[in-house]
């Protein structure tokens, strides 16, 4: 029991911060049909991005895995703050912790108003969750876009 507690506490000491770089290469907004209501229109955003990040400092003896996720955040004109995860990856080994990824969002990116018209520009950030073998879950941010990126006008097809 004491050993478990010692291991859990040691991860606070071993904690260090990673470095990374995130660039959004293109965004498209496409009109589509809503998932639940086939007659309703729903705008979907397609975000292409590059990630390079060195997450190896996060791996120590009490790191079971990393949950890495790319999040879009924006506040709409009514003042409603939105956070949407558009991509994620689970990293289980230190050898895989140097991330180089070029691609597009994995999860549907949509706004509850079903349209991206008049939605202010969004910030994108690469965040991580360190999951231990035993102890406390910790969160952090590896990279962030330097400025907010606006949504283009809707196009009818990709």
């Amino acid at each position: 029991m004491a050993l478990l507690a010692a291991i859990a506490l040691s991860s606070f000491v071993l904690m260090s911060s990673p470095t990374g770089d995130l660039a959004i290469s293109s965004i498209k907004v496409v009109s589509s049909n809503a998932r639940r209501y086939p007659n309703k229109k729903q705008d979907l955003a397609f975000v292409h991005f590059n990630i390079t990040a060195d997450l190896t400092p996060l791996f120590h003896w009490n790191t079971k895995q990393l949950f890495l996720y790319l999040e879009a955040e924006y506040t709409n004109s009514q003042g409603v703050k939105n956070e949407v995860v558009i991509w994620d990856r689970i990293v289980r080994r230190k050898e895989d912790a140097f991330i180089k990824f070029v691609g597009k969002n994995k999860y549907m990116f949509r706004d509850p108003s079903s349209s991206f018209r008049n939605i202010p520009p969004a910030n994108y950030s690469l965040k991580y969750n360190v999951m231990p073998y035993v102890g406390v879950l910790t969160y952090g941010e590896a990279a962030r876009t330097s400025e907010a990126i606006s949504f283009p006008p809707t196009q009818s097809r990709l």
Binding site: F67, Q78, G79, V80, K81, N82, E83, V84, V85, Y107, P112
Partner: peptide, 10 residues
């Protein structure tokens, strides 16, 4: 389960 989206509706 893990949180994927949050919308802080007024």
């Amino acid at each position: 389960h893990r949180v994927l989206e949050t919308h802080d509706v007024k």
